[in-house]
């Protein structure tokens, strides 16, 4: 009677050792949530947090989104110095590492960083997330767009657009790629993407960011069309936008929602004094890498 717990322990131990290889094999074959190297920080958290990692991941992306929402004014005014972009990026990165399934995190990364010159980093995150959210067409859609629009890598872009089409069971994305890549229709690609994003986005603050950018691109596109017409008629680029209005090719000069002024440069390209926040320099100055 007194010895029985010890005997039981031994019996259980033997059974356990015999059973364990099956268990081990199964664990090896489960979809693993821990591949790809990122910050050791995130890895450490992931190891310690156990099943709390999922929620902490969610929480970190919430924190980022709320922070970003609070800085929306400053971002609109392009006062990037007041925004801790570097910390924001690391937070989102950790969030994705902790919960790669989290939709908000990559969605936010795409919205916040791809337009300010970090398309490459965002793509790395997206590729990581894509391993988990295999059903989500938006990830290859974002990847394709980033490759085409920001990185001008049309080959990779086409691959991801194709993937997006396959997942969504819709030829739309492949069509988009075919239509715009080779026509030099970068602006139209941007407009198509932004229109899709405005439709998809629920959060008002982020939607507004997209709408503003969309408005700017639409303005540029209108002027570009007028410039093309002018070139056909006059066989030379117009000197200024005012000329286009005088000639009746443009009803009126569109407003730059970023507060800048559209103009036509020497090569006949449409530009704006606000630069539409596309310029990398502002962002680099604004980030806080020193911290």
């Amino acid at each position: 009677m007194k010895k029985s717990p010890i005997v039981l322990t031994i019996i259980f131990l033997t059974a356990f050792v015999m059973f364990f290889p099956n268990f081990e094999k199964d664990m090896r074959n489960r979809p693993l949530f821990e591949k790809l190297g990122y910050t050791p920080h995130g890895k450490f958290y992931r190891a310690v947090l156990g099943e709390f990692r999922w929620f902490v991941g969610d929480y970190l992306s919430f924190k980022s989104i709320i922070y970003y929402g609070g800085k929306a004014d400053k971002i609109a005014k392009r006062q990037y110095k007041d925004v801790e972009f570097y910390n924001l990026y690391t937070t989102i990165k950790t969030s994705i590492l902790l919960n790669p399934y989290n939709e908000d995190a990559y969605y936010f990364a795409q919205a916040a960083f791809s337009w300010i010159g970090h398309a490459k980093d965002v793509n790395a995150l997206l590729k990581y997330v894509m391993k988990y959210r295999t059903w989500d067409f938006k990830i290859p859609f974002f990847l394709g767009f980033n490759y085409a629009y920001f990185l001008k890598d049309y080959k990779d872009a086409a691959i991801y657009y194709k993937k997006a089409s396959a997942i969504a069971h819709s030829p739309l994305f492949t069509d988009l790629a075919a239509r715009y890549f080779y026509e030099g229709g970068r602006t139209r690609l941007g407009i198509a993407y932004l229109k899709a994003m405005v439709k998809m986005t629920r959060k008002e603050s982020i939607k507004k960011v997209y709408e503003t950018r969309l408005k700017a691109l639409e303005g540029i596109y209108k002027i570009q069309q007028a410039v093309e017409k002018y070139k056909k008629i006059n066989s030379k680029p117009p000197k200024s936008i005012e000329v286009l209005v005088e000639d009746g090719l443009l009803k009126k000069i569109p407003k730059d929602p970023y507060g800048g002024r559209f103009y036509i440069d020497k090569n006949g390209k449409v530009k704006t004094t606000s630069n539409l926040a596309f310029k990398k320099e502002d962002v680099k100055n604004g980030s806080n890498k020193s911290r």
Binding site: E51, F52, W54, F55, D58, F62, I65, I66, N99, Y101, N102, E103, D104, Y107, F108, M200, T201, R202, K203, I206
Partner: peptide, 16 residues
Amino acid sequence: FSMRQLQEISITMSLT
């Protein structure tokens, strides 16, 4: 607070 995964967050949070 979530952008587009309210249901997902609610499940994660409940389990957490």
